[in-house]
């Protein structure tokens, strides 16, 4: 029996010629740019979330009530503590110890202050109030003669700002994903237009919608995943640089050099997901686009 011929079949598994119809340059380059934006948005959302948590924790212990030294006698301090703990917004009311007070005031008053120190009650709030001014008023009403210091007002505003930034960053992420899907859909439609005759031929030969859509989806998934990987790799040093610039906000010292960049601050786990999510987005968009087009065939 004669041996079957040995022939070049390098493109036999790409009958639609998608390696040319879906270019391996333009689409990955566009997706890489969008992945870079997505990575920035993702890191921005994560950074804003961290700032929110940090500021919220700071604000939770940031309300104090001062009472005159005489309040230590006559049960006034105990009544004040009971009144404060009865407020629903207050998780814990605690009198600051004399040792803590002296430690705090030592830079100004020295080791043995000659003046009588006020009593200070620290309040840990269950959650940040919607209206810090209103809460301050209610605390003052609960403890007559007390002086309420509530710098949680501006902290709450910062937290609201950070939350807004987080929301905007997540919205930007969704927007980038939507644009990426639109770009993939346009590229796939151009590929369909370029390979219309070949698709019709395969369809006439008995190719299923799953087969044809799967060929486009596999190619689109590969290109988008590759582009997203490139964009993510570009984003990593940019994010490390931003983290270094933001170091003072977190009470850290900026490195100022490439070698000292805070690589540990880069959200590696989230970044690692980007190429996978990008590939999945490309695959799914191509599937939907091709299957919708194929429905017009008998």
């Amino acid at each position: 029996m004669a041996r079957p011929p040995r022939v070049r079949r390098s493109r036999g598994r790409d009958p639609l010629g998608l390696r040319r119809a879906l270019s391996d340059r333009l689409l990955p380059a566009l997706v890489a740019a969008m992945a870079l934006l997505a990575a920035l948005a993702l890191a921005g959302a994560q950074g804003a979330a961290e700032l929110t948590a940090r500021w919220e924790a700071g604000a939770a212990a940031a309300v104090t009530v001062q009472l005159p030294p005489a309040a230590a006698s006559g049960g006034r301090l105990e009544r004040a503590l009971a009144a404060l703990e009865a407020l629903p917004e207050v998780a814990e009311a605690r009198v600051m110890s004399e040792a803590q007070m002296q430690a705090l005031l030592r830079p100004w008053l020295g080791e043995a202050p000659a003046v009588a120190l006020p009593l200070v009650i620290e309040l840990r709030l269950a959650e940040l109030p919607a209206s810090p001014d209103e809460l301050a008023g209610r605390i003052a009403a609960a403890v007559p003669g007390g002086v309420v210091e509530s710098h949680g007002v501006w902290v709450a505003r910062l937290v609201a700002l950070a939350r807004s930034l987080q929301t905007v960053a997540l919205a930007a992420l969704v927007l980038v994903a939507g644009i990426a899907a639109a770009v993939v859909a346009v590229a796939v439609r151009a590929g369909i237009a370029a390979r219309r005759a070949a698709i019709a031929l395969l369809h006439d030969m008995g190719a299923t919608d799953t087969d044809i859509a799967g060929r486009f989806a596999g190619r689109a998934g590969l290109l988008v995943g590759t582009g997203a990987l490139l964009g993510t790799l570009l984003a990593a040093p940019v994010l490390a640089g931003f983290a270094d610039l933001a170091a003072p906000l977190l009470g850290q010292v900026p490195a100022g050099s490439v070698a000292g960049l805070p690589w540990g601050s880069v959200p590696w786990a989230a970044l690692a997901l980007l190429p996978l999510l990008g590939a999945a987005l490309g695959w799914l968009t191509a599937q939907v686009t091709v299957r919708r087009w194929l429905r017009r065939l008998p």
Binding site: P5, R9, G12, R13, P15, G17, A197, L202, M205, D211
Partner: peptide, 20 residues
Amino acid sequence: FRLLPHLTVFDNVALPMRIA
């Protein structure tokens, strides 16, 4: 004819079998 221009003769003939 409707042969796929980027495929060899072998791959054009093999196309229905690969689809199946």
